[in-house]
Design a protein around this nucleic acid. Structure first.
Length: 59
DNA sequence: ATAATTGG
DNA sequence: CCAATTAT
């Protein structure tokens, strides 16, 4: 269950925004911790971008 | 088919 | 380089 909570992210436009990722997943090589990644859409430009999620983000 | 995302 | 994901 991917809870769609908001996350503080730096948008490509350079602003800080509270957004919910459209998708979220773990990006980790085998045997390593890796990071969680979210797919966001910049509300200003409409451009998609990926951003790290907090390690405790519920995927 | 590729860029872009993190960090060991 | 490696991992998953998907808009471009």
């Amino acid at each position: 269950m991917t809870s769609k909570k908001t996350v503080k992210v730096k948008t490509p436009s350079g602003k800080e925004a509270e957004l919910s990722p459209e998708k979220a997943w773990s990006l980790a090589p085998k045997g390593r911790k890796g990071v969680k990644i979210g797919l966001f859409k910049d509300p200003d430009t409409g451009k998609y971008f990926r951003h790290k999620l907090p390690d405790d983000y519920q995927i």
